[in-house]
Structure formats: structure tokens, C-alpha cells
Computed example of a mutant assay.
Amino acid sequence: MRTDAPGPDDDVADFAAAVHAVVLRLRRLGERRLGLELLPTSELEVLAHVIDHPDATVTTVARALGLQSSNVSTTVQHLVTKGLMERLPDPRDGRRTLLRPTTKAQDDRRRIDGAWTAVLGQFLDELPDADRGAALAATMALARLAEIDLG
């Protein structure tokens, strides 16, 4: 973090670096504590989207994430091989394949969410009250940031 007077772009860069650092720590401490394999970011992103949007297609996932369909298809194959996703024929259109997370993927997601909550709780407990309050006050703004579609 900077010690000189930051400008607006510096503030954004500092915020981005802080969010990135927290996410990396959460992944290391959360998933590893559970003994789960750390998925590559591309697999994690596709899997998270399918968990949140079951019965998506490769095309809809690619569009939503701003990725190439061929890359999503390859990623899906890796997730299927790992037992985290399944491909099912669309009962309304046999030419389409629907993507669904497996029970294992859904269970892992719940365990990860719990681990992240525990780790973040420990982080927050270490902060001074004012910093803890500021971090918790940012919850809605962070949730809104996560929903913004820049694609």
C-alpha cells in the first residue's frame, strides 16, 4: 500500500491489489484446509457459473463469462473428468447438451463457502473495530461489483 497521497487511479489499483490478495489467501487457507484440489481459475469460474446456473449450455456459459465456446468446452471436459460436472441431453432439444454440477461439486462448494466464512471471520477478528466495521460495510458494494456485466 502507498504512503504518499494517492490519486483516484492509485486508489483503484490499491483496492484491486487488496481484493486479489484476500482471494488468494482464502483459496490457500480455505480449500487447502479442506484437502480439496485447487482448481485452475478457468475451471473454478466455469464451475461456479454452472452451480449458480444449472442446465446452462457451453454457449451460454461462454457468453456469460466472455470466453470462447471452444475454451469453455475444453474446461467442461476437464471438470467432467474430475467428477465435478455432468453433461446431459436437453429433453426439449436433443441437439443441445445441458451442464449440471455433480453432487460432489455442490457439496465441495458448500464446504468451501463454510471454510471461507471461518477464515474471513478469523481475519475480521484480528482487525481493529473500525476496520472490521468498514470491511463489513463494504459487503453490498462488493456484491454489486461481482454482478456487474462488463461483457
Rank of each mutant, 00 (worst) to 15 (best):
P6F: 01
G7A: 07
P8W: 10
D9T: 12
D11K: 12
D11S: 14
V12Y: 05
V12W: 04
A13W: 05
A13D: 11
D14Y: 07
D14N: 14
D14W: 10
D14C: 11
D14T: 15
F15V: 15
A16N: 03
A16I: 01
A17P: 03
A17Q: 13
A17Y: 07
A17M: 14
A18H: 10
H20Y: 10
V22Q: 05
V22F: 04
V23F: 07
V23R: 15
V23G: 12
V23K: 12
L24Y: 10
L26G: 10
R27P: 03
R27W: 08
R27H: 09
R28L: 08
R28A: 09
R28N: 06
R28Q: 08
L29R: 12
L29H: 14
L29C: 10
G30C: 08
G30V: 07
G30E: 07
E31I: 04
R33D: 14
R33L: 13
L34T: 04
L34N: 08
L34I: 02
G35T: 03
G35H: 00
L36M: 12
E37H: 03
E37M: 05
L38H: 11
L38R: 12
L39P: 00
L39F: 02
T41M: 14
T41P: 14
S42W: 00
S42V: 11
E43R: 13
L44W: 03
E45H: 10
E45G: 11
E45R: 14
E45K: 09
V46F: 03
V46Y: 00
V46Q: 00
V46S: 05
L47N: 02
L47A: 10
A48D: 09
A48H: 09
H49L: 13
V50L: 11
V50P: 05
V50G: 00
V50F: 05
V50C: 04
I51N: 02
D52E: 14
D52C: 11
D52H: 15
H53T: 11
H53A: 06
P54R: 07
P54K: 05
D55F: 13
A56E: 06
A56V: 09
T57D: 06
T57E: 09
T57Q: 08
T57G: 11
T57I: 11
T59N: 09
T60W: 08
T60D: 12
V61D: 02
A62E: 02
R63Q: 12
R63G: 05
R63F: 12
A64R: 03
A64G: 06
L65M: 09
G66E: 11
G66L: 05
L67E: 07
L67N: 10
Q68S: 08
Q68M: 04
S69R: 15
S69F: 07
N71D: 09
N71M: 02
N71F: 01
N71I: 05
N71C: 05
V72K: 01
V72Q: 00
V72T: 07
S73Q: 14
T74K: 07
T74I: 01
T74E: 11
V76D: 06
Q77F: 00
L79W: 00
V80Q: 12
V80Y: 01
T81E: 14
T81Y: 11
T81N: 08
K82T: 00
G83Q: 07
G83P: 01
L84T: 03
L84I: 06
L84E: 03
M85N: 01
M85K: 04
M85L: 15
E86T: 14
E86W: 08
E86K: 13
E86Y: 06
R87C: 00
R87H: 03
R87Y: 00
L88G: 01
